[in-house]
Write a protein that binds this DNA or RNA. Structure first.
Lengths: 210, 210
DNA sequence: TCAATTGGCATACGGAGCGTATGTTGATAG
DNA sequence: CTATCAACATACGCTCCGTATGCCAATTGA
């Protein structure tokens, strides 16, 4: 026994993050008692404050971990597709499906923003957005889609995806709701595709917005 | 003096809602002390518990009030446009602009979902969505846009709008960010418009999503 | 090898906030 | 006119959080 010090410390941090992640994901951030979930990890609040400063710091660490997993999953999905557009579509699909998971929905999509502020300011969340933005950039370079600010497009699409996912997850008939959402999402995404017949100098949809 | 009883009661409720709305909108729900903001209204927590049950109940009432205002504003905006499409565009614009207001952003978009759960389940929020869905339905009847589930489209668009608004509000250069967001939003909305040349039997964007 | 020191974590204490139980007052009904 | 009940205020106990303090083990330097 008597493993190296560094390992014990890392294990303590990992246990705290795991316990907090479980508590936050089930009962929610506000209802999660620090005394309770530190005890469930065989520790006390002393360890928590030492490593993470406070409850919000621990939430940050939890979200960082989840977001890293999400980002990795997105990268895998988009990389294994045959072509860029299909990879992008798969990425969107994966994004929606991840947002359906209760743990992600509660911690990242609901409690996170309330406690840590707007997600667009998180370094972690930006990683996910960046992954989608990169896909869009490649599509743009390839000439498949129209010229558009990649970050803006990525944020709009992720916003639509996340709301769609929450709607689906909480609907009475998730299966049917999913079908409707995907179909409508489909229609919107078509706006990105270049028109086959020529330049799109048609009526600009939101020309009225200053 | 000695105004009717009902009026006094209604005034008490209104004062509590107003005080809570201010507190929630500035320091946030979690940091708002019930003792503090009830006192600022010249009352105590006794009145709060009597009228609203608990802190969450009061938040519900606050959100209901804000949402009613939002819904009314949307109705006005869409009604005064020359045509349906322009009215819809104006409605989207108004939606984004409302989401830029700090009070709405904090109470309705961040704290609300964390405390009360997914907004798609709120009777109030559904009012706003319903307003947008109604506009889309009329556009669909009119033949301006493609056939699409109106609620799904409304939710996707509102999701994109809200995220865009949060991104804009928290960006370093809101003016520039707004331009980029609106332009991308524009592109996506074009997916809704019927193609002038014929039926849209082209590649379906998300055919890969089950 | 043996202090000395430092970091990792637990314990103890004080304060704040929330929910409930109870009290008080004033208006309305009969 | 009185009895009742609604509309609030007060009081109490509990839980939870943050900080200050204490202890122990592991590392460091000679």
């Amino acid at each position: 026994m008597h493993r190296p010090r560094r390992e014990m410390i890392a294990e303590t941090r990992a246990k705290l993050i795991a316990a907090a992640r479980h508590a936050f994901g089930t009962v929610g951030y506000a209802e999660a008692s620090m005394d309770d979930f530190t005890a469930s990890a065989g520790l006390t609040r002393g360890a928590l404050y030492h490593h993470f400063g406070d409850k919000k710091g621990l939430l940050q660490a939890v979200i960082r971990e989840i977001d890293a997993e999400m980002s990795a999953r997105l990268k895998v999905v988009s990389a294994r597709a045959d072509n860029l557009w299909q990879g992008f579509v798969d990425e969107c699909t994966a994004y929606i499906e991840m947002a359906l998971e209760p743990e992600i929905q509660r911690i990242v999509l609901r409690d996170g923003p309330a406690v840590l502020g707007d997600p667009s300011q998180w370094p972690s969340q930006n990683e996910c957005i960046h992954s989608m933005a990169e896909s869009i950039r490649r599509l743009s370079d390839e000439g498949t889609i129209v010229a558009v600010d990649v970050e803006a497009a990525a944020r709009l699409i992720s916003g639509a995806s996340l709301h769609a996912a929450q709607w689906i997850a909480n609907s009475d008939d998730p299966k049917a709701t999913s079908k409707k959402a995907v179909k409508a999402f489909n229609v919107l995404l078509e706006g990105l595709l270049k028109r086959p017949g020529g330049p799109q100098d048609r009526m600009r949809a939101l020309s009225g917005m200053h």
